[in-house]
Design a protein around this nucleic acid. Structure first.
Lengths: 145, 145
DNA sequence: GTGGCTAACTTAGCTTGCTAAGTTAGCTGC
DNA sequence: GCAGCTAACTTAGCAAGCTAAGTTAGCCAC
């Protein structure tokens, strides 16, 4: 067997995630998972736990535990949604906003540097990845019916 | 913030891994992680735990636990390496070989079908991913010096 | 031939995924 | 107006990743 696409994607992403995690823990005292959650709340408008789970591609219980932890750390504000239902309204505290702002473009810039070294055309790779993700999203929705 | 490459890669891979895991558990009663480990021992010659960790892109303790479990399940044979050192010699049992053989190309074929639906050129994406992985490998080795 | 070095492995404990099952709040039908 | 439905969330327990620290086996210097 040659190393195939699914294995390579798996290993590549695992290494990128671990590298990001080490850097963030060392320089900003936060895990990559928690940083992603805060970023999605702050900048992509993930305003309920259900929405955040969709954006992260994880399940509700995973988000439920993480929002509890982030709230306890004072980075995230979790309130019953006045709009009704059993929803929680998520928003960044000032501390959460400062953390996200201090990291922001850093990772994409570092990753872009790696991509540049590899000779892979960044924009093209990013577009292909986004398209694959959208296709996979669609297939999951269809399968879920 | 737009959804960027690192986040998209993270989410795409997480969903692919989860889909693979669900299918393997349902159809072959094995997790995706364990299947990858067996495949790498059987077909890429990962003959010690250290080598297997490198191929999988995980750490030695993770492999140590998994090889114990796989040995207990009768899928993997783990022996002291007669070549010396403190190494373990890894090899598939007949059951392990049968499992790997029964799954083999199945995933790559299914993934290729998804890629085809997305319009992303499979060979090109696979090559870019492999090149990125190689670059990241190199950077990690250099950083490790 | 013993003391220290290194590499491979293990153990312990944490994080963060997951599934299954339970709770809570609003909505719908009758 | 209550019975049942659904969606969002929580709780409990498992899987598999991690780091830190300990063990084991060979190797090297003296």
């Amino acid at each position: 067997m040659e190393r195939n696409l699914s294995l390579n994607l798996h290993v590549l992403t695992a290494r990128l995630d671990r590298a990001a995690d080490r850097i963030l823990r060392a320089e900003h005292n936060v895990s990559y998972s928690r940083f992603l959650a805060l970023t999605l709340v702050g900048e992509l408008g993930a305003s309920t736990q259900r929405t955040l789970a969709d954006y992260l591609g994880v399940t509700e219980p995973s988000v439920s535990r993480m929002t509890s932890v982030l709230a306890a750390e004072g980075l995230l504000d979790v309130q019953p949604d006045p709009g009704g239902g059993n929803r929680r309204r998520l928003s960044l505290t000032d501390g959460g906003k400062r953390l996200v702002a201090s990291i922001r473009q850093e990772f994409e810039d570092r990753l872009a540097a790696v991509v540049a070294q590899s000779g892979v055309p960044y924009a093209e790779y990013a577009e292909h990845t986004a398209r694959l993700l959208a296709t996979f999203d669609r297939l999951e929705r269809e399968a879920g019916k």
